[in-house]
Design a protein around this nucleic acid. Structure first.
Lengths: 215, 215
DNA sequence: CGGGAAATCACGCAAACGCGTGGTTTTACA
DNA sequence: TGTAAAACCACGCGTTTGCGTGATTTCCCG
């Protein structure tokens, strides 16, 4: 099933021993072909200039010269169809966050066994996003931070509705028209919103509403 | 290793057949104890009032009465230490997003085999966050949307600086004072910002800046 | 070296805004 | 059934804004 066109894999990893060992492991897998190994991102980027396009890249983030995190968006631009898996020892939230935002297709730790790494590659090919369990947990936790309404300002439905119109830049007059109300009513609601949000200007209210996900 | 205190699992799932089958499968696992099965979230919430606290909950989202997504935050509040796994047929971005934001510890699909479900439970106990591969991919894609500067409006440094002041609700006068400039200069910058962002009001500019992560 | 973009400053006007202060009607709940 | 909160409406005042139309200076780059 895989013999006609083996999966082309690149390794970007400065530790030569680890890179070669991993390359050997991957090569031994049916359908895998470890076509290139680079010690620096710059070399990999140069290779893309020569028109080479792997299916998968295993990318270390702690590299001499250009870091993997810096290279990621560049690689993604050059190789939009290539799935890039992070393979690193770092598991801090900032690196995870930046890697994912930059378009990493998965995040593995170097503590992973060869079996786990090959399984991850197969998973990413199958449309998945392999992650170390702890990393996945962190991702979900970070994600859940986005949905918090933070504080409760006890805004009424009408007030939230008007707050929504504010974020579209509408004038009091326009909001009144849109809701079929008098401009004085909008003004009245607006004041209560200001009091509840503890702001004094429209833009401050909009900023607070958006920053704290009230709308 | 697990005999002293088996893992207590609740199922919240309206399909009686599926729930009972799954309960039987889980019970057959070493160290698992399927203590309760509910057809409605309301029943589960009532059970928490009686002081019951499972280790794991498998929660369907498409339920009669209160939906699983509505119940999730309530369950999380009652049972802060319980890991809640979503087990559903739905895989649309909105449901995934809401479930994760509400604190789901994992997201499984009902197409999962019994083996996959038991593996997922063991994974969540081990500090992981089991997800269906496709779901995990979606999560990373959604996540990566947060880091985008979206479009490039070609704002100058000064303009971005002033845009920042705008999001704090400052008046032109105040910004001028803060930057040691004339109010006319701020006005001038403001107009260019409006032109570049294609807006006509301050709040619209603030909204656009925050929504598109320009600041 | 010269052109263009960015940054700075200036004046005036109509429109919109924030705010004080008043009111009535509708809705919700005890 | 009463009462409080929300929603609705109104007028006026002083301030701020958005915009048209100008100008000068600084700095980068071809």
């Amino acid at each position: 099933m895989s013999s006609p066109s083996p999966l082309q894999i690149w390794l970007i990893e400065d530790n030569t021993t680890f890179r070669r060992t991993l390359a050997r492991v991957l090569e031994s897998q049916d359908g895998f072909e470890c076509t290139e190994g680079f010690a620096r991102c710059e070399h990999a980027l140069a290779a893309t200039e020569r028109g080479l396009k792997p299916d998968i890249i295993l990318l270390d983030v702690g590299l001499p010269g250009m870091s993997g995190l810096h290279a990621l968006p560049l690689l993604r631009e050059k190789l939009p169809d290539t799935k890039i898996l992070i393979l690193t020892v770092f598991d801090d939230d900032d690196k995870i966050f930046r890697a994912i935002c930059a378009g990493a297709a998965g995040y593995l730790l170097k503590t992973a066994s060869p079996e786990e790494i090959t399984a991850a590659i197969r998973e990413v090919v199958g449309g998945g996003a392999p992650m170390n369990g702890r990393i996945a947990r962190r991702v979900l936790e970070m994600f859940s931070q986005f949905g918090r309404p933070t504080k409760d300002y006890d805004l009424s439905e009408r007030e939230i509705e008007i707050l929504n119109h504010l974020t579209t830049g509408q004038l009091k007059k326009e909001i009144a028209q849109a809701l079929g109300l008098s401009i004085h009513t909008i003004d009245s609601h607006l004041r209560k919103i200001y009091i509840k949000l503890e702001v004094n200007t429209r833009s401050e209210a909009v900023a607070k509403a958006l920053k704290e996900k009230l709308v």
